[in-house]
Computed example of a mutant assay.
Amino acid sequence: MNLISLPTPTVGVPLPGRGCDCNACAFYAGPDGRGGPATVEPLCSGTNSDCRFCGCAATEADAPANACVTRKCPIRCGSRTDIAQWMADVGGTLSFDDISIDGALPDLPTFIPMTDGSSVTKLDASLNWPAYGVGLRRVFSPDTHTLYKRFTEQTAHQALDLKPHQKAVLVGYGEDPLVEAFWTRRQRDRLVERIAEQQWDLVLSCNYSIYGDWPRTEHLLNMRRCLLLAQEFAEAGVPVVPNVYWFRLEDLERYLSWIEDAPPPAIAINVQTVRDNATWDSWERPGLHWLAANLPDDMPVFLTGLSRANRIAEMVDLFGSRLTLISQNPHQYALHGAVMTANGREDVHARPEDAFAATVQYMSSLLPAR
């Protein structure tokens, strides 16, 4: 489809180009960094060639005013009829320059197992492990999009039956509908403030996805939303680590400039959705190597979802003792009496608490002492 060039509407905030037209985009930097005629913030090198959405019906000149809303499209692009509202929602910019995430990390082990949000007493019986993680969907309902009462009527430590010295970590990752609902409802329902009242020792802020077949506008919005939400947690007094996602080298370079200018306590990267070797080798792995080579030497890194021993070993080589690994594998395996070993998963038909302890200890042994 040949897209006609349309002017960027004047609405008080810079907008991406309709139909992914770089010449009408406020964020196009181009190969020379000088941008196009509509450029306000030169931070994007151009359209995503793999995008499946930029040629939708909303790009047509005679598209109805409510085309995106009536079709319930989940993708944000320059053709959206409500794109100005989304731009205003993130502060009218896609840069990171105005974001600052202050705070300090608690004392944590190098490996943090995740549980289902119920009492850890039985699983922890023989471990006395220093910290436990809980996923967002155990705290914020994917069905009602409200916080579960067991976490609003008591602290996170009480809900998990933790000992005084044990830390509670909220891992704010989830499927796209869950984290989108959290973003949409967070201010109306005071979600950040109410989670702050739960007294988590650390929150890994939500990750907003970046897929290869999405338009660059969606990428840019989601990278900023990840950092903005972390800033909101920090302003509420919550120790928080922002999630970083990327798609291009320029994304990593922007993160690095921001980190050098306003360093957060740490960065977190969710790799649990990268299961196939092709995606790992072509996208995630090169980015992790780049970060290891360019991040400040004292910047802690949290990786969530890494479970293969060879990948863990490679990340240990890259990040050393500043690496913290968070995984739900021990709990998932324990439900089936299985354990993780150097040979992979072994179904040993153990009691859940024994299987859980064995996998936690094994995965911890793969990480250097701190």
Score class of each variant (00 low, 15 high):
residue 294 N to A: 04
residue 308 R to W: 04
residue 298 D to I: 04
residue 288 L to E: 00
residue 314 E to Q: 09
residue 288 L to C: 09
residue 297 D to R: 15
residue 315 M to E: 15
residue 305 G to L: 08
residue 295 L to K: 10
residue 299 M to F: 07
residue 309 A to R: 15
residue 313 A to Y: 11
residue 300 P to F: 11
residue 305 G to W: 03
residue 295 L to P: 12
residue 296 P to I: 13
residue 294 N to L: 05
residue 310 N to G: 05
residue 315 M to V: 02
residue 319 F to I: 10
residue 308 R to S: 09
residue 301 V to E: 00
residue 306 L to G: 04
residue 307 S to W: 00
residue 311 R to V: 03
residue 293 A to R: 09
residue 310 N to V: 12
residue 307 S to T: 15
residue 306 L to F: 06
residue 307 S to P: 00
residue 296 P to W: 14
residue 302 F to E: 08
residue 302 F to N: 09
residue 292 A to L: 07
residue 298 D to N: 15
residue 316 V to M: 01
residue 294 N to G: 07
residue 295 L to I: 12
residue 305 G to S: 06
residue 291 L to D: 03
residue 306 L to Y: 04
residue 300 P to S: 05
residue 309 A to N: 15
residue 319 F to W: 09
residue 305 G to N: 06
residue 290 W to T: 01
residue 300 P to E: 08
residue 287 G to M: 11
residue 300 P to W: 06
residue 313 A to I: 07
residue 298 D to V: 07
residue 304 T to L: 10
residue 309 A to W: 02
residue 315 M to I: 10
residue 309 A to Y: 08
residue 318 L to E: 04
residue 312 I to T: 15
residue 286 P to G: 13
residue 316 V to H: 09
residue 309 A to P: 02
residue 291 L to F: 14
residue 312 I to R: 06
residue 294 N to I: 00
residue 297 D to N: 07
residue 296 P to Q: 15
residue 313 A to D: 14
residue 311 R to C: 07
residue 316 V to P: 08
residue 291 L to K: 08
residue 304 T to S: 10
residue 316 V to R: 08
residue 304 T to F: 09
residue 311 R to N: 14
residue 300 P to Q: 10
residue 292 A to C: 10
residue 314 E to M: 11
residue 315 M to A: 08
residue 313 A to C: 07
residue 296 P to G: 13
residue 288 L to T: 01
residue 318 L to M: 13
residue 297 D to Q: 14
residue 299 M to L: 10
residue 310 N to I: 12
residue 297 D to Y: 10
residue 292 A to W: 02
residue 312 I to P: 03
residue 318 L to S: 03
residue 316 V to I: 05
residue 298 D to L: 13
residue 286 P to E: 11
residue 292 A to K: 04
residue 305 G to M: 07
residue 306 L to I: 10
residue 312 I to N: 06
residue 306 L to E: 09
residue 304 T to E: 02
residue 296 P to C: 15
residue 301 V to D: 00
residue 292 A to S: 15
residue 296 P to D: 15
residue 299 M to G: 01
residue 298 D to C: 05
residue 292 A to D: 07
residue 291 L to M: 15
residue 305 G to Q: 12
residue 310 N to S: 14
residue 293 A to F: 01
residue 319 F to M: 10
residue 303 L to S: 01
residue 290 W to L: 01
residue 313 A to H: 14
residue 293 A to C: 00
residue 313 A to Q: 14
residue 294 N to C: 08
residue 310 N to T: 14
residue 300 P to C: 08
residue 308 R to M: 05
residue 302 F to K: 07
residue 299 M to E: 03
residue 304 T to P: 02
residue 300 P to M: 09
residue 295 L to E: 01
residue 295 L to G: 09
residue 303 L to V: 06
residue 287 G to S: 05
residue 290 W to G: 00
residue 306 L to H: 00
residue 305 G to C: 12
residue 289 H to C: 00
residue 317 D to Q: 14
residue 290 W to N: 02
residue 315 M to Y: 04
residue 310 N to M: 01
residue 303 L to M: 11
residue 317 D to S: 13
residue 303 L to C: 01
residue 311 R to L: 05
residue 297 D to I: 08
residue 299 M to W: 07
residue 308 R to F: 09
residue 317 D to G: 06
residue 292 A to G: 04
residue 314 E to C: 06
residue 287 G to L: 04
residue 286 P to V: 13
residue 313 A to V: 05
residue 305 G to K: 09
residue 316 V to W: 11
residue 290 W to S: 11
residue 309 A to T: 14
residue 305 G to E: 08
residue 304 T to N: 13
